[in-house]
Amino acid sequence: MNRSYLILLMSLLLTAQSELFAQEVNWRALDENANHLVSAAFGADYSSYYGVSYGYVLRTGRRPLVIGTEFTASFGREILDDWKWRTGIQAELWKSGAFSLALKPAFILRRYESPLARMYSAGTNVSLAFGHVKAAWGLTATAHYDRSFATHLKHGSLKESYPGIRDGWYGASGGNFKFGARAHWSPGSWNVFLHLGKQYGQDFQHNPTLPFFAELSVQKLLHARL
């Protein structure tokens, strides 16, 4: 097994072993029996995309943790050539009345393919959410930082243009910020989240072509054990 596949395998194992998470959470709607969060989402940031996510509520300490995973794929003719798989954990760090501060670290694995090249990229993501959260509704400000730390490149038609181009593993390729606002509305055991904001390159000078992001997600809280 060459080094490329070893790194890819380790990334996958890291992603898988840390179990699940990534979707939005309304902390005030998590009653003691709610163990599972199942969501569907669509939106746009670095492509237009749709996705599904699953979260498991872990109650080991004073406050619940949600561990979960989210898979999103880009719209377009090719169904699974571009995707993002984010896995992590989130917790409410602080709360006072309806005010809440939550932290969400995650691993991200991305795949991209076009006629020019294919990429597999591993990275990390940290999100902070602060706002006014109630069981039925809420509004939070969010900040995200996302950094790719290793990417494997295999070139297609770019190799025809430049035969000397080098395939293989490349190091940290930069990072991006997202700043936004998230509103939720929670009728019964359902949650609806709308997340809007602006995205930047980490140097705030080389910014993405689509400057804004938006996501609408619908979530079902399940009480039964799966």
Binding site: A44, D45, Y46, S47, S48, S74, F75, G76, R77, E78, D81, D82, R110, Y112, S114, P115, L116, M119, S121, G123, D146, S148, T151, S173, G174, G175, N176, Y200, G201, Q202, D203, F204, Q205, H206, N207, P208, T209, L210
Partner: peptide, 20 residues
């Protein structure tokens, strides 16, 4: 907006981000 062409053009921007 929902085309493969758009994804192929801008998806890598989240990997190659903020480098000068």
């Amino acid at each position: 907006f929902f085309s493969e062409a758009l994804n192929d053009a801008i998806f890598p921007e989240q990997i190659l981000a903020g480098r000068s």
